[in-house]
Nucleic acid binder design. Structure first.
Lengths: 148, 148
DNA sequence: GTTGAAAATAGCGCAGA
DNA sequence: TCTGCGCTATTTTCAAC
């Protein structure tokens, strides 16, 4: 594994500040030609240093729904399988938190749904269709003692 | 203030999944012309619904320390035992979230510590001394995929 | 790592339902 | 007002060096 040099770190810092900044502007800011810069960015993406890009959405209404803690085990634990799963997780707005855990190397998700029926829909249409999912274990919260 | 229509929500969902998606691809996905789509995106940005864009960087040395998901079972599940336990939980600043769960493991806590040694201290001095605690199961998170 | 050229895209004015 | 269309500057992307 190559360590990140100063240029790589500058790229990461700039892309974290503005994920939609053009490659041309990024290249100029770090002092590279656009093609060399793009090659570094693609390499950082492929190595998993950049896991993806996302829009920061203003959360309007913190709705008082059902909280479900979900444990998900993947069929395989390859980097590629994990990356694909995590991409699907980030795409699902009902998943409020997600942690990759030690142990059986599965994930813990905190999912918020409007009610039990809504969670059933999320389970069927989103969670169970995520790539590489082998097992889903759902635990419903009765009450939030300290909220996230 | 205009409420978000179905097209706006589709745009937000897609940009949340891939913040660098081209406007042309976004437009096709939501069924608009590129210019109409771009105008909606700019409006969402200007209204503050989209606060910005960012690259999701793999955190090798995460600053906030380690995240531990803790499952705590009480000796008794009487109202009084639960009330006393929850009071102790609220007094512990390292416990960032706490949910009373259905099923066998009674509470799930998200605890943040500086490092593993710090968590050991929290475990010994705080968690294990909370009233009515019968069993503590700790799972360490390797990485936060969403939030933290 | 760079240059250069072709293809795709962004961004803007303008006209119409 | 919101949409779609045409145009141009910019950007992306790939090849060759």
């Amino acid at each position: 594994m190559h360590p990140l040099d100063e240029t790589d770190r500058a790229i990461l810092r700039l892309l974290r500040a503005d994920g939609r900044m053009s490659n041309a502007a990024l290249a100029e800011a770090v002092g590279l030609s656009p093609s060399a810069c793009l090659r570094r960015v693609r390499l950082l993406e492929h190595r998993g240093v950049i896991r993806g890009y996302t829009a920061i959405i203003e959360e309007t209404a913190p709705r008082p729904g059902v909280v479900v803690m979900v444990r998900i085990t993947l069929e395989r634990q390859t980097d590629e399988a994990m990356r694909r799963f995590e991409e699907a997780v980030r795409r699902c707005p009902e998943v409020r938190e997600c942690y990759l855990m030690t142990g059986d190397s599965d994930y813990i998700l905190r999912v918020e749904a409007r009610d039990a029926a809504d969670y059933e829909r999320i389970h069927k249409e989103a969670l169970s269709r995520m790539p590489g999912v082998a097992r889903i274990q759902s635990s419903f919260a009765i009450r939030s003692v300290i909220r996230g």
